[in-house]
Amino acid sequence: MNFWRKKTTKKNSEANQRLRLFQENGKVFLEDLVELCNGQSNPIKAYSANQILEATDNFSERNHLVRFEFMYRGMLENRPVLIKRPVWKLYTSDTLEKICRDIAVSSMVSGHKNFLKLLGCCLEFEYPVLVCEYAERIPYKTPNLGMFSWGLGTRIKIAKEIAIAVSYLHTAFSRTMIHMDIQPSNIFLDSNGTAKLSGFCLCVSIPEGETFVKVDAERVEGVLDYLEYKYVTSGVVTEDTDVFSFGVLLQNLLTRNCEVVDCCSDNDDESLFEYEQNVMKLRISDRVSKFVEEGRVFEILDPKMLESLVDEEHERQRMEAVLMLSLRCTGHRGHVPKMIEVAKELRRIEKWTQR
């Protein structure tokens, strides 16, 4: 009798805990929705903790897609899904706010084909869990696999589709949305090869009628090579912040695999001057610009891509055009374009025919 009483008590305790988490997480999430879009967004389906645990086999290692990261493969309602769950290394004082921002922005853009579609979320865990359509993240750390066997046309297509997605973020809403974390780990391909942007934990909105917003310069987050210098040194966020990151993405799509360094706000022991110097030393964009200036462009291009060229002269012209566009994005050549201009230029380059 005592055994069943204890078992019932435990179940009731777990149910009460999940209800409490649902209410607390839901409050933060709704506050984010109100800030960003006055509470108006696509309907978001709520999944239970039991559904998530069953879909991932209790977050089993065999369903864990990337070691030390937070994505799991699962089956939910007879369809494959991606389940995003924060892992220990992400736990900070603002982890909940970041995840709710990811859910809120994902819900706003889910109708667009170039964003990873949010199917729903679960608020019954300590930190909310996202359920997304299934797609494969582009492999960017394995030199002999994935993107490193793609031809130039595929790389330009992916870049164009991500540029369209970023343009949408910048222009489709009453408040300009700045992604703040455009880099390969947030880009996915579905079964049709359509590129999709994800990862809105760091997303910042610019108030209506304004062109920038200032954030705490001491809390710089993201991948160091992809961070705009102005943002790093002053905390000023503009559309150019994303344009810079996208320019570096273009460069990484065409050049040899480059190591990147994570930059977190925990590096309080490093002075701002030292930090600025490290940014300048590590920037991919500075290295690409130097090679272009010295006429050594093809020394840095991915040899796998060069091997796949059909019409070498024509394809080299397209590669040079993309690289020059990337250097405009990073402020190394002429004025920095808007993302909608970048998307149009990539469309034009994609359609180039042999002259």
Rank of each mutant, 00 (worst) to 15 (best):
F3P: 01
F3D: 08
W4I: 09
K6T: 08
K11Y: 13
N12P: 00
E14R: 14
Q17L: 15
L19S: 13
L21Y: 12
L21G: 04
N25Q: 03
G26A: 07
L30T: 12
L33Q: 14
V34N: 12
N38W: 09
G39F: 10
G39A: 10
S41H: 15
S41Y: 11
S41L: 06
N42M: 07
P43E: 07
P43K: 06
S48T: 15
Q51I: 08
T56Y: 06
E61F: 13
R62C: 09
N63T: 06
V66T: 13
F70H: 15
Y72C: 02
G74S: 05
E77I: 03
N78T: 02
P86F: 04
T92V: 06
T92E: 08
D94A: 04
C100Q: 01
R101I: 07
D102A: 09
S106R: 05
V109G: 02
G111M: 06
N114T: 08
L118D: 01
L119Y: 10
C122F: 04
E124A: 02
L130W: 03
Y134K: 00
A135I: 00
E136V: 06
I138D: 01
T142I: 13
N144T: 15
G146W: 11
G151T: 04
R155C: 05
R155T: 06
I162M: 07
A163Y: 03
F173W: 13
S174N: 13
R175P: 01
T176S: 10
D181L: 01
G193K: 04
L197K: 02
G199S: 08
F200R: 02
C201K: 11
L202R: 07
C203F: 07
V204H: 06
E208K: 13
G209T: 04
T211M: 08
A217V: 08
V220L: 15
Y231I: 00
T233Y: 03
S234I: 00
G235P: 02
D240T: 07
S245G: 12
F246H: 04
N252I: 10
L254A: 07
N257R: 15
E259T: 12
V260E: 02
D262R: 14
D262Y: 13
F273Q: 11
F273K: 12
F273L: 14
E276V: 15
Q277H: 10
N278V: 09
N278Y: 14
V279P: 00
R283M: 12
S285H: 07
V288W: 01
G295A: 02
E299C: 06
E299P: 03
P303V: 06
V310T: 09
Q317L: 13
R318S: 10
A321M: 09
A321F: 05
V322A: 02
S326E: 02
S326T: 05
T330D: 04
H332I: 00
M339H: 00
I340S: 15
R348M: 11
I349Q: 07
T353W: 08
Q354I: 15
R355Q: 11
